[in-house]
Simulated assay, not measured.
Amino acid sequence: MEYRRLGSSGLQVSQVCLGSMTWGKQNNQHDADEQINYALAKGVNFIDTAEMYAVPPSPETYGKTESIIGSWLHRHKEKRDEVIIATKIAGGGLSWVREGHPISGKSVTEAIDDSLTRLQTDYIDLYQLHWPNRISPHFGKHWPGMVQPTHEDTEQEIADMLDILESIGKAVDAGKIRYFGLSDDTPWGIQTYLRLAQANNLPKVVSIQNEFNLLHTKDWPYLIEQCIHEDIAYLPWSPLAGGALTGKYLNGARPEGTRWSLVQRQGLFRDTQLSNKAIAAYVDVAKAHNMTPAQLALAWCNQVDGVTSTIIGATTMGQLKEDLQAFSLPLDETLLNDIFSVYQQYPMPF
């Protein structure tokens, strides 16, 4: 297992981050315990969660994942300092989370305290904004024209961001959180938080996690370049495109108990004709090089310049073991060329 510095923070995180969003819906406490224990034994020291989880999000599953992690932490107090816990405050739009209101300084303070209670810990290593208050080109809204920045009130957005950052600063001063990160944001969001932090002596953004995989590379190289030069960790989420890159959903298949067999809040926007052609081609490349499609996708993500730690998720121990093996697999020039030939044909398939 390799370890990399989390942006400008003092934290060294494993190249693999254990995602947890299925815990509380597709996985129970026993499953989560087994996954955490196995991942830690393999050198993983980074766990990502969110107050919104489990997914698909619902009033019944809200906060369950943090509570499951909290139960593990309560029973393994001696390991707390060995594990880097990242969680997130939900943005606006979920009626059962603060009545759907956008993030504010006040809600940040409340949400941090609630997460600390559920996690049964005194501090959170990395606290992230799950998505910005303004509409951003994420969750399938990345095609030109889908987001209208001119419809936003720039001055108000900046004022709200400063309000949020001031509350983050108070939480850092109080020892409740150690570092601050973003999720599902853009270069403008990163740069604005950096400028506000410098001008007001407030915490600097140390990381951002965005969707990034062989089917979805809009951050490459532009946002990732900014992360490198500003010393911000880039954390890909959904490196398997919601499981699609495993090939298990090809030809309309919906295996029982899988994510795509459940109701999706945003719909199956990754399931397009071009996506399926790209996935089938990547499956063929993986077979030709004696690896699984999931391992191909994860190993590729890991070797992208600027990627700090890739967030993986598994519903079975078999999947977790397969995924972790991917990060020790070398990608030679022939394999990378084969991958790139497919990528050139399908650079933006959904």
Rank of each mutant, 00 (worst) to 15 (best):
S167H: 09
V97A: 03
E152Q: 12
R80F: 14
A171F: 15
L126D: 06
I112D: 02
D122R: 06
M161K: 09
K106W: 09
V83Y: 14
D163K: 12
S167T: 15
I103M: 13
G145M: 03
I103A: 12
A111C: 08
N133G: 13
A159D: 14
T87K: 00
A159L: 02
V97P: 04
A111V: 05
R134L: 08
E82G: 06
G145A: 04
Y123M: 11
G93E: 08
E155M: 03
R98I: 02
T154K: 08
Q148H: 14
Q128T: 02
L116T: 15
V108K: 07
Q128R: 01
S107L: 14
G145C: 04
P149D: 10
P149W: 12
K88I: 08
L126N: 05
A159N: 13
Q156G: 14
A111M: 04
T150Y: 15
D163F: 14
E157F: 06
T109K: 13
P102F: 11
G169E: 07
F139R: 03
G175C: 03
A90D: 02
Q120V: 03
P132H: 05
E82L: 00
A171D: 11
V172L: 09
R80V: 14
L162F: 09
W96R: 13
I112K: 01
D160H: 11
